[in-house]
């Protein structure tokens, strides 16, 4: 059992969720409530990682994070180390790759808040930010929860992107999914089996918890 790899995967998933939560609230809310020119294009761009093969997506990220790219150069001058094949690069790739898993359910969550309830909040004297905290988030949170759980579970199991952008550096970019692949390549079937089972267990627990929480919310709202 490669505990370092598991811990790295959990950290990667955790950071991805932490970064994507505010992003999905912001983007999900805008896409749910606003009508603007190019909205369809934005929605399509957000969904793109869902349809592209992870290797293709990973290839483009690798190119755009590389030392020759503006993003890579900026990172190098800011932090003095390359962005590719680092944990930070992996987090950034994971954030971008998980946009559809985070934003889509968040958008559905905000869309479930009736227009007149939002209007009532404004007519009750609530500023947009107070309306977000006291009315919209309490009503949209099943969608946000789904978004975060999907992101977390999906990041734990991601393989192609991680391999393309991160490589397989132990303690830095070697996640549990990569570790399992390595074990299989090295004919260590029992090691791969244990790690796979652990991953299944974690995923199952996370999803079950989500369903249980959503059902409780459903009852609470009648």
């Amino acid at each position: 059992m490669d505990w370092t790899a598991l811990w790295l995967s959990l950290q990667l998933a955790g950071w991805t969720v932490v970064i994507l939560l505010p992003v999905s609230i912001l983007m999900g809310r805008v896409l749910a409530y606003r009508k603007f020119a190019g909205k369809g294009l934005v929605e399509a761009l957000v969904m793109l990682p869902l349809v592209l093969p992870p290797t293709v997506f990973g290839f483009y990220l690798l190119v755009s994070f590389g030392a020759a790219s503006p993003v890579g150069q900026f990172w190098q001058t800011m932090f003095g180390e390359p962005l590719v094949f680092s944990f930070e690069g992996l987090v950034l790739a994971s954030v971008i790759f998980n946009l559809p898993f985070a934003i889509q359910p968040a958008q559905r969550g905000f869309e479930s808040v009736p227009v007149e309830v939002r209007e009532a909040a404004a007519c009750c004297g609530m500023s947009p930010s107070r309306s977000l905290w006291t009315v919209e988030l309490p009503l949209a949170w099943p969608g946000l929860l789904t978004a975060m759980v999907l992101t977390f579970a999906h990041t734990l199991g991601e393989f192609g992107i991680v391999l393309m952008v991160g490589g397989s550096i132990p303690g830095e970019t070697k996640t549990i999914a990569i570790a399992i692949y390595d074990r299989v390549q090295g004919f260590d079937d029992s090691g791969a089996a244990i790690m796979s089972a652990v991953l299944v267990a974690i995923s199952l627990v996370t999803i079950t918890l989500t369903y249980w929480l959503s059902a409780r919310v459903g009852r609470r709202l009648g």
């Binding site: 309830v117 007519c123 006291t134 709202l221």
Partner: peptide, 11 residues
Amino acid sequence: VVFQNYALFPH
């Protein structure tokens, strides 16, 4: 404002 369908905060 009293809305036609009241628009109460359901939570």
